[in-house]
Nucleic acid binder design. Structure first.
Lengths: 146, 146
DNA sequence: AATTTTTATGCAATTTAGTTGCAAAATAAT
DNA sequence: ATTATTTTGCAACTAAATTGCATAAAAATT
């Protein structure tokens, strides 16, 4: 996805939220759209800095929370005890995630859509399904090939 | 499960590990077997104290890591940014988890065994599947019934 | 049985992700 | 222009988890 595209998409997505479309929100959402993997706060801050945007750590946390709340980004628990965030043009289609045990990268598998075949025990009310796969990513498969 | 049972099971499980079967490890594993939900370090420490066992926080963290490493306990990322631990008699049968958004309790759904129907994209090597469901638990369903 | 080696535990200090409260800045509404 | 609302920044704080090192306990060796 080209930077112009992500910017346009980010603007469109922000248009669908309640609240203001600020430079920081736009930039962060753009970063989350453009990224190949899900990023944590630190990585997002670094990427923002690279783009010449400085934003306070706290603001980033709040922005990320807000984006998730608004449904234009989603949050996944990473192995390294941080939250990682990702966004895509097609709003929040539920999908699986894959985290590599070697490099730690967290991929969205947009074509793997979790669904429940068996039913839950009595009394449980389901809101969301989280499907996370663990293993070795393509890159590390090559790297650590025997 | 009665306390005697869990103790016996814990001893058996520890027998299958490399490393020593110490009082702390036995007690912690017993707690993880007896618990209805997955517990975090703090809750485990409280439970241990109730049983008259005092163990350093660091030792608990190390014990938990070790139990997971040895495959006699498993670890799930909780919504509250802590790791929660659980063990069962039948060693590490992969199963789904359910976390309640109201009370935060994390349940093991041992009869819900995740399996992948669709195949992964080229190059990804799968080690483990994590299936976590979010929603309202039976207790909170009653509590917050409209 | 005494000594050496290995493994497990405790303690103190540190790291780091994430949060809170409040003031200042920016934007929108009147 | 003025007022009200929302967003951002700063400083201080919380709490989970980690690290390094010394001590204790258990196992292995002589």
């Amino acid at each position: 996805m080209s930077p112009e595209d992500t910017n346009t998409i980010a603007e469109n997505l922000l248009g669908q939220t309640t609240g203001r479309s600020t430079p920081i929100r736009l930039a962060v959402l753009g970063i989350l759209l453009a990224a190949k993997t899900a990023l944590n706060q630190q990585e997002i801050e670094q990427q923002a800095t690279r783009q010449g945007l400085t934003a306070d750590r706290v603001t980033l946390y709040r922005t990320l929370d807000w984006l998730v709340e608004q449904g234009v980004a989603h949050r996944i628990a990473s192995n390294d005890r941080t939250w990682r965030y990702k966004a895509q043009a097609n709003l929040a289609t539920p999908h699986a995630h894959f985290q590599c045990k070697h490099c730690g990268q967290l991929f969205c598998l947009e074509h793997l859509q979790p669904a429940l075949l068996v039913s839950l025990p009595q009394g449980y009310q389901l809101d969301a399904i989280e499907l996370k796969l663990q293993g070795t990513c393509p890159n590390c498969t090559l790297k650590y090939a025997t």
